[in-house]
Every structure is written in structure tokens, then in C-alpha cells.
Lab assay of single mutants.
Amino acid sequence: AEEIWQQSVIGDYLARFKNDRVKALKAMEMTWNNMEKKEKLMWIKKAAED
């Protein structure tokens, strides 16, 4: 689920960090860890469908 979420937001994060992939990935990891369980559930369901 986290991978699907990352694939959907990586472009936004890379743009925000001027294509600094290391910073973008760290920010994504922090965002994922801070997400509410119900927000993650949507992505977990999406992962299950694929």
C-alpha cells in the first residue's frame, strides 16, 4: 500500500524538492508515518484490488 501511495505522490514530492530524490523520499516516509489509519486504509484497499 505504501508503494502505491508513493508512486502516486512521488512527482509532487520531487517537484517540491527540486528533484532531490533523497529529501523527497525522506519527506514521503515521514508523511506516510504521520498519516491517519483511515487515510492509509484507502491505499491498502487500492493495493488489494491490484
Rank of each mutant, 00 (worst) to 15 (best):
A48M: 15
I4K: 15
K45N: 12
E2S: 06
D50N: 08
Q7F: 12
I10S: 05
K18H: 15
W5M: 00
W32C: 01
Q6C: 11
E29C: 06
E49F: 07
Q6M: 14
K37E: 15
A1H: 04
Y13E: 01
L14K: 02
I10H: 04
M30L: 12
E3S: 13
L14V: 04
K18D: 14
L25P: 00
R16G: 05
K23I: 06
V22T: 13
K38A: 13
W43R: 01
V9A: 04
K23C: 10
L25C: 11
I4M: 15
M42I: 15
Y13A: 02
E3W: 14
M42C: 13
L41Q: 13
L25Q: 14
E49P: 05
E2V: 09
E29R: 10
K45E: 15
W43C: 02
K26Q: 11
Y13C: 02
E39V: 04
I10G: 03
W43D: 02
N34P: 00
E2T: 05
I4S: 09
D20F: 02
N19V: 02
R21N: 08
A27K: 04
K45R: 08
E49W: 09
I44K: 05
I4H: 08
N34C: 12
L41P: 01
Q7I: 09
K18T: 08
V22P: 05
W32K: 00
S8W: 12
K40C: 03
K40W: 03
A47H: 08
W5L: 01
A48I: 11
M35E: 00
A47Y: 08
K37V: 13
T31K: 10
N33Y: 10
D20A: 02
N34S: 09
I4G: 04
M35N: 01
L41C: 15
V22H: 08
A47T: 05
W32T: 00
A1Y: 04
K23L: 12
A48E: 13
A47P: 06
N34F: 07
Y13G: 00
E29N: 10
R21Q: 09
V22D: 12
G11I: 14
I4C: 07
E29L: 09
Y13R: 01
E39Q: 05
L41A: 14
L41Y: 11
K26G: 12
L41I: 09
L14W: 02
N34M: 12
K18Q: 15
M30K: 10
A1W: 08
I44F: 10
I10V: 05
R16V: 11
E29I: 09
M42G: 11
A27N: 04
Q6N: 07
D50E: 14
M30S: 07
E29P: 00
G11P: 06
Y13H: 02
E2W: 10
L14Y: 03
R21C: 15
K45M: 14
A47Q: 05
K45W: 10
S8N: 06
L14H: 02
R21A: 08
V22A: 13
I44D: 05
E39C: 10
G11R: 13
